[in-house]
Amino acid sequence: MAFDAARGFWRTVNSTYGITRLVSFGKEPTAVPLDLVSQLMLRCDAKGKLLPPKLLKPGDQVTLTKGPFANFVAEVEKIAPDRRVWVLMELMGGQTRVAVGADQLRSI
């Protein structure tokens, strides 16, 4: 069943046990981007419980999820204290070192 915010029944959802509140910007509920929902679902176990993010370490194989190198496979070289991750990527026959945010990587 689809949720219809225009009908005004969303206030009762906020009082449902287990729900803190609907996502909203202002007074009305707002749709969450499907990409965000998909990424959260990938981090859930078989019962739908959100798992903590896997901590990366040097040598891990990762896929870049955003930017011009999206879907490229890389190897974690180093992780800086500011959560910037240095990865090694195979580009045009050689290895290239690239710095990306940890939120742009998915372990494989």
Rank of each mutant, 00 (worst) to 15 (best):
F3Y: 06
D4V: 11
D4R: 06
A5Q: 07
G8D: 01
R11Q: 00
R11S: 09
T12V: 04
V13D: 03
V13I: 15
N14W: 05
S15I: 13
T16S: 11
Y17K: 10
Y17H: 13
Y17I: 03
Y17E: 10
G18Y: 05
I19W: 02
T20C: 12
T20A: 05
T20Y: 09
T20H: 12
T20I: 14
R21C: 07
L22P: 07
V23L: 15
S24I: 06
S24E: 01
F25Y: 06
G26S: 13
G26C: 02
G26F: 04
G26H: 14
K27R: 15
K27N: 14
E28Q: 14
P29V: 12
P29R: 00
T30V: 02
A31T: 09
A31V: 12
V32P: 01
P33F: 00
P33Q: 00
P33T: 04
L34T: 08
L34E: 12
D35M: 01
L36D: 06
V37C: 01
V37Q: 09
S38N: 03
L40P: 14
L40F: 02
L40Y: 04
L42N: 12
L42W: 00
R43E: 05
R43P: 14
C44V: 03
C44R: 01
C44A: 00
C44Y: 02
D45N: 15
D45T: 05
A46K: 11
K47T: 10
K49E: 15
K49D: 14
L50P: 07
L51W: 04
K54L: 05
L56I: 07
L56Q: 08
L56S: 11
P58Y: 11
P58Q: 07
P58L: 01
G59R: 13
D60P: 04
Q61C: 03
V62A: 03
V62K: 03
V62D: 01
L64G: 03
L64F: 13
T65D: 08
G67K: 12
A70Q: 12
N71Q: 10
N71E: 08
N71Y: 12
N71D: 15
F72V: 04
F72K: 03
F72P: 02
E75L: 08
V76G: 09
E77A: 04
E77W: 02
E77K: 02
K78P: 02
I79G: 09
A80C: 06
P81K: 08
D82Y: 05
D82Q: 03
R83M: 10
R83E: 07
R83D: 12
R84V: 04
V85Q: 04
V85Y: 04
V87C: 00
L88I: 03
L88Y: 01
M89F: 06
M89V: 08
M89L: 07
M89Q: 07
M89P: 02
E90T: 12
E90R: 01
E90L: 13
Q95D: 15
T96W: 08
T96K: 10
T96C: 05
T96M: 12
R97S: 09
V98C: 06
V98H: 10
A99I: 01
A99Y: 08
V100M: 13
V100F: 06
G101W: 01
A102R: 07
D103P: 08
L105C: 02
L105F: 00
L105P: 08
R106H: 14
R106E: 12
S107W: 15
S107E: 10
